[in-house]
């Protein structure tokens, strides 16, 4: 079934690989510095260097970050890793669960106030967060959700929801209406058609949206540090950020931690690569 391979002129092939290699170098180079720093023991002489490679490679920074350098540290680290995972997964789940029906309605159903809702949603993206942090805190306090993972999840989910709605609305618009109609003729209610037909068809987009929500929660630390007040409840970015002190920072451990924190995201990226690409097909935002 695959179409015959088009013959690619040699210069096109060389050209594309040159472009890609250059771009990859650009993309990877600063990360290499982070990696190099993560594997460096402190005390390396600062030299004007171009090739990022540690003078004396060591795993000490990683050990310190995961708490292997003191008793009970590793267990704490695992707990905090667990927190991060739970909070991020729950954020992804909540964001998707809330955003999906809404984006379905926005994509498919006519309703009074739709234009206004879309505009408002887009407008929320324009408002710098500097203004809303304190009111949010007060709100969570009234909901008795301070210092609870569920409160954090709520906060993260709300920041993730507008983007998720845009994302999913675009994706659902690309799914043929025929499918739902077929289901409804087959005996489905609209809701059944949504659950049994639209959701499976939108799965790649949902996966990608979930990934974005996961990422935004996974990397955040200011709100987490403000809302959480127990060490065992901390998420990893708070731990990571604690290596940057007022006067002096332990950049080696910070870098090692950054790599460890990024690793799950990288793995997820790798897994959903394909979906990522088709899922963003119509990241449709209409103001």
């Amino acid at each position: 079934m695959s179409p015959p391979k088009e013959r690619v002129p040699l210069w096109v092939s060389i050209g594309s690989h040159t472009v890609l290699a250059a771009a990859t170098l650009f993309a990877v180079y600063p990360v290499l510095w982070v990696i190099s720093l993560a594997f460096s023991a402190g005390g390396d002489a600062p030299e004007p260097r171009v090739v990022p490679f540690p003078a004396h490679p060591t795993l000490e920074n990683f050990k310190q970050f995961v708490g292997l350098d003191h008793a009970g540290g590793f267990a704490l680290f695992l707990g905090q890793l667990g927190n991060s995972l739970i909070v991020s997964l729950a954020t992804a789940l909540v964001a998707v669960v809330i955003a999906t029906p809404a984006s379905y309605a926005l994509a498919r159903l006519p309703f009074f106030g739709k234009e206004g809702a879309l505009r408002t949603l887009f407008a929320t993206q324009m408002f710098p967060a500097v203004a809303s942090a304190v009111p949010l805190y007060v709100l969570l306090e009234h909901l008795h959700l301070l210092d609870a993972r569920s409160g954090l999840v709520l906060v993260y989910a709300t920041t993730a929801i507008p983007f998720a709605i845009f994302q999913l609305k675009g994706a659902i618009e690309t799914i043929p209406v025929d499918l739902e109609e077929a289901a409804m003729v087959d005996g489905a209610t609209r809701f059944q058609a949504f659950v049994k037909v639209v959701l499976p068809a939108a799965r790649p987009a949902i996966a990608v949206t979930a990934l974005f929500a996961f990422m935004s929660a996974w990397n955040e630390f200011i709100l987490a540090a403000t809302l959480l007040s127990r060490k065992s409840a901390f998420t990893l970015p708070i731990v990571l950020q604690s290596y940057v002190g007022e006067h002096l920072a332990n950049w080696g451990v910070f870098a090692a931690g950054a790599l460890l924190v990024s690793a799950p995201v990288m793995i997820l990226f790798y897994i959903v690569q394909r979906q990522l690409i088709s899922g963003l097909t119509a990241g449709g935002v209409k103001g």
Partner: peptide, 21 residues
């Protein structure tokens, strides 16, 4: 009545096969 209560079956121009089934 909504479609499901009409007891009709329909063949669509695009076939509208459920892609995940």
């Amino acid at each position: 009545l909504p479609p499901r209560d009409r007891d009709v079956a329909m063949v669509f121009q695009s076939y509208a096969l459920y892609p995940h089934l």
